[in-house]
Nucleic acid binder design. Structure first.
Lengths: 251, 251
DNA sequence: ATACTTAAAGTAAAAAATACAATAAGTATT
DNA sequence: AATACTTATTGTATTTTTTACTTTAAGTAT
């Protein structure tokens, strides 16, 4: 039995909906597949990582790839992206952002599949691929040492990295990569990894504290063999309030 | 005769391409329509404008809308967006940027149509709707005084405006809205309109000239009833060179 | 008690941003 | 031709921010 919506359209949609003079019947425009691909960033030991899976089916069997999936006919894009992330990591409520849509005619061997790229920032402590059901095939890779990727995933990943680096300097999103309680030095090292250059410790501290977007906690870092640093958490409420007054994060 | 690619897929694509366990046959995922919608920005008399057309067909007949069109099965997204712009304005080689993809399940009454938003910056001197073949229906609107829009075009437009305002402050794209030769005051007024606040004339001039991205011309503004200002043009080569050295535009 | 490590605070110099002021170079008017 | 008028362009003093270090504090390890 035939359920293709394009055909249903041809039968049911009144001609008043034909919004232009198309060269071919309008149902023949409904031939696109739609997918989402997720660039999942993590941070570990001073390096920005990205989560990849090894494909166990053709095409590109054995190649590493971004995780992604076809979007269901009745599924919103954001839901599709969240599902993909949750299926792999079990994580919900993760920072996620659409960054670009890739639609080259020949990007997918199965047909015309347009894919929407999302990136998400995961505190790498929250997810260990070894413990996941995809264990055998999922792995964190440093973005400076990537394997060859399936499809046009190299393009997608590069665009994702570019967008992240750009966003991170103007919005306080980098925090998502850290545990909820962190020291100022940990934050500094994260930003050094993200932006690719060093900060002066004293000046970094001054600058970030002056912004008033960190909440100082009455706790210190444990299990260090030297003076423990005070822990802070990102103060989202305070940031939102400042943003309304015209403040804009800048590093 | 039936030409739907989804069906062709079902017949011809070997099972090794079935990349996951899908709940429904894979051809039933190929039911999406794809379109592009363009937010065309112009600048005139100190105001940021956007070009809208009045729909002459259902749905939303009579409503103003962004210009856009369905993407052909063998057409790349960028080409589709350029075509739409050229069909309306006759302009080629216009700055154009993809900014977001809108895919809510019920955003289009004809079926599942996902639309990719592009914005373009047009020097409004280059296009006058009166002279165009769409004359009767195309019109510039100030972004502070917009009519009600068809579909979810209000969302798309707002997201486009947000993206423009964001981009303009970190990349020298605002220049695209001016004629190729402009005075420093004209540039300042443009940025004041884009960013929503005033600059000190002397300081703005100092800052922008220090960037070394403007080429001073041996020409002055004509037809003004006071001392004419020197004309400048944006020096793209110089900007690209500086960018490689790590310079980043900031206003 | 001492050495060692990192946290946290301070400080002086340099650079950049800001707010004006002064001068220059045109056009329009008398 | 002299004068008023308008905007362009240059200059300058003050304030603020950034930068590069220095000093002191507070913990752990020996």
């Amino acid at each position: 039995m035939l359920k293709n919506l394009a055909l249903i359209c041809r039968m049911e949609i009144p001609s008043k909906y034909y919004i232009s003079d198309y060269k071919i019947p309008i149902d023949e425009y409904f031939v696109f597949g739609l997918s989402v691909d997720c660039v999942i960033f993590g941070y570990h030991e001073g390096e920005i990582k990205v989560l990849l899976v090894q494909r166990d089916a053709e095409p590109f069997k054995g190649h590493w790839a971004l995780i992604g999936d076809l979007v269901e006919p009745n599924q919103n894009l954001r839901d599709a992206a969240n599902n993909v992330l949750e299926k792999l990591t079990g994580l919900k409520n993760i920072y996620m952002k659409q960054f670009f849509t890739f639609g080259s005619v020949d990007r997918h061997p199965i047909g015309r599949v347009v894919t929407v790229g999302y990136f998400s920032l995961v505190n790498s402590m929250d997810y260990n691929p070894i413990a996941s059901s995809w264990a055998k095939s999922a792995q964190w890779f440093s973005i400076s040492d990537l394997p060859e990727l399936a499809f046009d995933h190299h393009n997608i990943l590069q665009k994702g990295i570019e967008t992240l680096k750009n966003e991170v300097r103007h919005k306080p999103t980098g925090f998502e990569l850290l545990p909820s309680k962190f020291t100022l030095l940990e934050l500094q090292l994260l930003y050094e990894a993200l932006l690719g250059y060093k900060f002066d410790k004293s000046n970094f501290r001054k600058k970030i504290l002056e912004m008033k977007i960190l909440k100082p906690l009455n706790e210190v870092k444990e299990n260090v063999s030297h003076r423990p640093a005070k822990l802070y958490s990102f103060d989202e409420k305070s940031y939102r309030a400042l943003e309304k007054e015209g403040f804009s994060f800048q590093l």
